Computed example of a mutant assay.
Amino acid sequence: MRNWWKLMVILTPLALGGCYRPEYPSKFISSDLKEFESYQKKCASRPSPPARAITSLGDTDVFITYSQPAVKGRTIWGDLVPFDRIWRTGANEATVLSATGDILVNGDTLLAGNYALYTIPGQDKWTVILNTKYEVWGAYDYDQSLDVLRFDVEPSTNNDLSERMQFTIDDTGVIEFAWDKLKFDFLVMPL
């Protein structure tokens, strides 16, 4: 028993290591494309590398920054990503929707800024959530009281397998999510 403290010195860092969350990198959501590309290059070897979808709607830039998990032969919906539970809609850092000007999202006003984009996947409908607390890793620190928008979308079957999760934004403001054989979309417009 005299050396119990030595055992504690060895075991404490191991126990706390499981709770480790990396510091949130500001370059992840930087509107400076060169900063983001530098971060993207630095993290390219991650199993779920960072990616960005971007478009300009008039004078407003809209972009979604996220990390791209892969299917890798796994069952995604209802297994890896459980139904009816909050999901970061990606991997690593929370997925972030950013707008340099005020926009309409599915008909509701969203002020310029950065917002975590969470979802609650369901078998017949998904709830899309925009939340002001975006500088987080995953959905561990999700706080519903900070939601600014919530709306439902209907997922559909994608004819082609999307091995890596992806967002796209076309020049009309349609944001599409696709992963595995599932997709959904919603509309953003300048105010």
Rank of each mutant, 00 (worst) to 15 (best):
M1Q: 13
W4L: 12
W4N: 08
W5N: 02
K6F: 13
L7N: 06
M8Q: 11
M8G: 06
V9R: 11
I10T: 11
L11D: 04
T12L: 03
L14S: 07
A15R: 03
L16I: 03
G17F: 12
G17D: 09
G18C: 14
C19E: 04
Y20D: 08
Y20A: 04
R21G: 07
R21W: 07
R21Y: 10
E23S: 09
S26H: 07
S26I: 05
K27V: 01
I29H: 12
S31K: 06
L33M: 11
E35D: 15
F36L: 05
Y39R: 00
Q40A: 13
K41T: 06
K42S: 14
C43N: 09
S45W: 12
P47L: 02
P47Y: 07
S48F: 00
S48Q: 03
R52H: 02
A53K: 10
I54M: 13
T55G: 12
T55M: 06
G58D: 13
D61H: 07
D61S: 09
V62R: 08
V62A: 13
T65M: 09
T65E: 09
Y66E: 14
S67R: 09
S67F: 01
S67P: 10
A70E: 12
K72G: 02
W77P: 03
G78P: 14
G78D: 12
D79P: 03
L80T: 08
V81M: 06
F83D: 08
N92Q: 09
N92M: 05
T95C: 15
T95R: 00
A99Y: 00
T100W: 02
G101V: 03
G101P: 11
I103Y: 03
I103V: 08
L104W: 10
G107E: 07
D108Y: 05
T109K: 14
L110E: 04
A112M: 09
A112P: 12
G113N: 02
A116P: 04
A116Y: 00
A116M: 11
Y118P: 15
T119F: 01
I120H: 01
L130R: 06
L130I: 03
N131V: 04
E135K: 13
V136K: 12
V136T: 14
W137R: 14
W137M: 15
G138M: 01
G138Y: 12
G138C: 05
A139Y: 02
Y140E: 04
D141Y: 02
Y142K: 06
S145K: 12
L146W: 07
D147M: 10
V148F: 02
R150T: 10
F151L: 10
D152K: 15
V153Y: 05
E154V: 15
P155N: 09
S156R: 14
N158T: 11
N159Q: 06
D160I: 04
L161V: 05
L161Y: 10
S162I: 02
R164D: 13
R164Q: 08
R164H: 06
M165L: 15
D170G: 09
D171K: 08
G173N: 11
G173A: 09
G173E: 14
I175N: 06
I175G: 02
E176S: 15
E176K: 15
W179H: 06
D180W: 00
K181G: 06
L182M: 10
K183W: 00
D185C: 07
D185K: 15
D185A: 13
F186S: 11
L187G: 04
V188K: 08
V188C: 07
V188A: 11
